Simulated assay, not measured.
Amino acid sequence: MHVQVVCCHPLTDSFDHALFRTVVSTLEQNGHRVAATDLYREGFQPAMTERERATYMTNDYDDSAVASYVATLKSVDGLILCYPHWWFSMPAMLKGWLDRVWGPGTAFVYDDKGKLQPNLQNIKLLGVVTSFGSPWWIVRVFAGDPGRKMVRRGVKPLLARDVRSFWLAHYSMDSSTPRSRERFLERVRQRVATI
């Protein structure tokens, strides 16, 4: 399988970057081809340009400024996102990657009536490996799990109809311990090894 692994964290010594490295190495050890995408290290520019926004509501979306990212997304069989949740959401840079790269002609197309039709049928696996500073009950009960809902209801429907998915989250990062982090890394290794 050819899998794109997208990392979005500004610090290479962060736990989220360790998760990214774990996912990439586990995939490679199991014979998968990996397109490792580290948005911060690549200097990805998350802000949509004026030209991109002007063409966004048509199938002639101008994605020329992000063409290499589009080409990668269209070429892979799987996608795993590695990022922290800040303010119950993904970092702005990752949201900008979705805004700019997942445009018309890539993630979806407009039909004759102007309705969105899914277009990333090549992607048959979607995974999220993430962290939250808050405990699980604050994220899921109090806040309503907005990050997971966005991925499940916004991203996943644009992929293959039979897409397999998983969500692995380390909660309570603000009070985590080396032991809790190592246990989670092992959980990630075991899950990714099943791909």
Rank of each mutant, 00 (worst) to 15 (best):
M1K: 14
H2K: 15
V3I: 14
Q4P: 12
C8V: 08
C8Y: 00
H9K: 12
H9W: 00
L19Q: 13
F20S: 08
F20E: 12
T22Q: 14
T22K: 14
V23Q: 10
L27R: 06
L27A: 08
N30Q: 14
H32N: 15
R33V: 08
A35W: 00
D38S: 04
Y40F: 01
G43M: 06
G43H: 03
F44Q: 10
Q45H: 08
R51G: 02
E52F: 06
Y56L: 09
D60C: 13
Y61F: 07
S64N: 13
A65G: 08
A65K: 14
V66Y: 00
V66E: 02
S68H: 13
V70E: 08
T72F: 01
T72W: 01
G78R: 08
L81G: 12
Y83C: 14
P84A: 10
W86D: 15
W86L: 12
F88D: 07
M93E: 04
M93W: 00
G96C: 04
W97A: 07
L98A: 06
D99L: 03
A107W: 02
F108K: 15
F108I: 05
D111V: 04
K113S: 09
Q117W: 00
P118Y: 01
N119R: 13
L120G: 03
K124S: 05
L126G: 05
G127Y: 00
V129N: 07
S131P: 06
R140M: 00
F142K: 15
D145I: 10
G147F: 00
R148D: 06
V151K: 14
V155C: 05
K156A: 08
P157A: 10
L158P: 08
L158S: 05
L158K: 13
L159V: 08
A160W: 01
R161D: 11
D162G: 04
R164N: 09
A169S: 13
Y171T: 12
S172W: 02
S175V: 09
S175T: 13
T177M: 02
R179N: 10
E182M: 14
R183H: 03
F184C: 09
L185V: 06
R187T: 13
V188G: 06
Q190L: 11
R191M: 02
A193G: 12
